[in-house]
């Protein structure tokens, strides 16, 4: 029987160094092997022309229904603008205690906020969002610790405030789950 893995799927172009770092981050925080898979799924069906954004709920459902048998969890990363009906945008979304999560770099870019591009910062933000969304799939809720990666981030500078790691309390909860 094959070992259960966390599958990291990427749609669109991502620098290999960034992907490698995400893999390392997931393995470090969740102690589970990670399999990296490149995808070329047609996600245009999730595009809402009225909002000119992609429906994250439907995208998440799509990812969830296409997980492999050995995927303990699947996290997919995109380059498109994500929304849920009630919110103007989101950085990422996960099924709480579920199997899948999604994240996007779109709203993480400095350029979205009239600032100079910063690739390194962008990668770091994406890595944090991926670790954060995966945390929800493992049943972690938002953490009040300002440095914990599970802290809720509603704007991009919020993400920069936290560290790329789970706090001790979240780690303990993860061990118990």
């Amino acid at each position: 029987m094959a070992t259960q893995k966390i599958v990291l799927r990427y749609n669109g172009h991502f620098e290999q160094s960034c992907l490698d770092k995400i893999v390392a981050d997931i393995q470090r925080e969740y102690k589970i092997p990670v399999e990296l898979i490149e995808c070329h799924s047609d996600i245009s069906i999730f595009f809402d022309p009225a909002r000119r954004q992609y429906d994250a709920n439907k995208l998440l459902e799509f990812i969830d229904s296409n997980t492999g048998p050995y995927a303990l969890k699947t996290i997919a990363i995109f380059r498109v603008d994500l929304y849920i009906p009630i919110l103007t945008y989101i950085f990422g979304q996960a099924a709480y205690k579920g199997k899948s999560g999604i994240a996007s770099v779109y709203r993480l870019k400095n350029e979205q906020y009239g600032l100079k591009p910063d690739e390194k910062l962008l990668h770091e933000r994406l890595r944090k969002v991926v670790v954060h969304e995966l945390g929800h799939t493992f049943g972690l809720i938002h953490c009040p610790n300002p440095e914990c990666v599970m802290r809720s981030s509603t704007y991009v500078e919020d993400i920069d405030q936290k560290k790329l790691m789970l706090c001790r309390k979240c780690k303990n909860e993860l061990a118990l789950s």
Partner: peptide, 17 residues
């Protein structure tokens, strides 16, 4: 009355505990 709104908010708040 919209399921998608209920689901979105449900997921959003459940993650906040």
């Amino acid at each position: 009355d919209e399921e998608s709104v209920r689901d979105s908010l449900y997921n959003w708040f459940i993650e906040d505990g």
